[in-house]
């Protein structure tokens, strides 16, 4: 079963990458892409090489990293909070990133500064995660339910802040904020990849190294502590790693919904509760899902490009409801 799932995910991933590199206004057959990949330097013309290397490849990589980061973070959150509705945004990260981006846009800081927008979004996301952690802390530790409630409360507050900034912004800024909060992979730049690769790959490695700790925490904090786990330390490491991964992803791509909620939830239904399997599969599935969704965003209404968040919702929600109904039926 597990083998089949990985095989399907691998096929979806490779297919998505080839389609992402090949499809567009200048279609390139998969055969020639593969020939180039295995060393035939004449398989692509210089113009095609430029399109693939400069435009499509960064975008595909960006999709793999952002989708993988969101899905893995969602899997960690759902395991940590033992709640299928937990997502990478549970600690108010999406709201924080949007508010940060809105501040940067309305104050004019974004003018001509490449780093200002992702920087503001990253700071907003990280600050809201820290605030939620601090708000939920009690003398005896940080109860998971308190974290979820503090996250929901802060997200509402931050969405009011963003709303106020939009209300008082000029029409041009209004549009910029709105487009940013819808999320999209069209913002892929080599500079963004340079920080996404280490943060997301590093985050996934840390999370996988603590996957078994997450399994054992399901037995309850008391029992886990008899089995060599320090529950508070595990939660700190996992929340820290997922916050950094999510903030890095959201800082550039904007808050893309549903990937982090649906992908790990669906995989848990298929693969079972073991987090090493689940999180590794989430990294592959999240990446593949977002690359295919982005393909849809680019191609469905060509030449108009849709926000990828709309596609993830249109694809993800019916699938989620199907799984939900199947689960209820069983």
């Amino acid at each position: 079963m597990t083998g089949t799932v990985y095989l399907v995910l691998g096929a979806l991933l490779v297919g998505g990458v080839l389609a992402g590199l090949g499809l567009g206004t200048t279609p390139i057959p998969a055969g020639r892409l593969l020939a180039y990949a295995v060393g035939d330097r004449d398989a692509l013309s210089p113009a095609e090489l430029l399109i693939v290397g400069r435009i499509r490849l960064p975008r595909v990589l960006f999709g793999l990293l952002v989708g993988g980061a969101l899905a893995v973070a969602g899997g960690v959150m759902q395991g940590l909070f033992r709640n299928p509705l937990a997502s990478p945004y549970t600690l108010g990260l999406a709201g924080g990133a949007s508010a940060g981006a809105a501040v940067v846009i309305t104050t004019g800081l974004a003018q001509g500064r490449l780093w200002a927008l992702p920087g503001g979004a990253f700071l907003g996301a990280a600050a809201s995660a820290l605030a939620v952690g601090a708000l939920a802390r009690t003398r005896k530790g940080t109860p998971p339910l308190a974290l979820i409630l503090a996250g929901i409360a802060l997200a509402s507050l931050l969405s009011a802040v963003t709303g106020a900034l939009i209300y008082f912004a000029n029409p041009q800024e209004k549009g910029a904020i709105l487009v940013w909060t819808m999320g999209g992979l069209d913002r892929a730049t080599p500079a963004a990849l340079a920080y996404l690769v280490p943060l997301v790959v590093g985050g996934i490695v840390v999370v996988l190294a603590f996957a078994r700790d997450l399994d054992i925490l399901a037995l309850g904090d008391e029992q886990a502590s008899h089995m060599g786990i320090v529950p508070g330390r595990v939660r700190f490491v996992l929340l820290g790693a997922t916050t950094i991964m999510t903030a890095a992803a959201v800082a550039t791509a904007g808050p893309i919904g549903f990937v982090g909620l649906i992908v790990p939830h669906a995989l848990r239904l298929v693969l079972g509760p073991s987090h090493a399997r689940l999180l590794a599969a989430s990294a592959l599935a999240g990446g593949a899902f977002l690359v295919w969704a982005d393909l849809g965003a680019r191609l469905v209404l060509r030449p108009v490009e849709l926000p990828v968040g709309l596609i993830t919702a249109f694809l993800g929600v019916p699938f989620f409801l199907y799984l939900l109904r199947r689960g209820v039926a069983q």
Partner: peptide
């Protein structure tokens, strides 16, 4: 510590999917 000594709590969740 966990290599030398361990404890089984009275209440452990019964609905584990493992």
């Amino acid at each position: 510590l966990a290599q030398r000594l361990t404890m089984l709590e009275q209440e452990v969740p019964a609905d584990l999917a493992f």
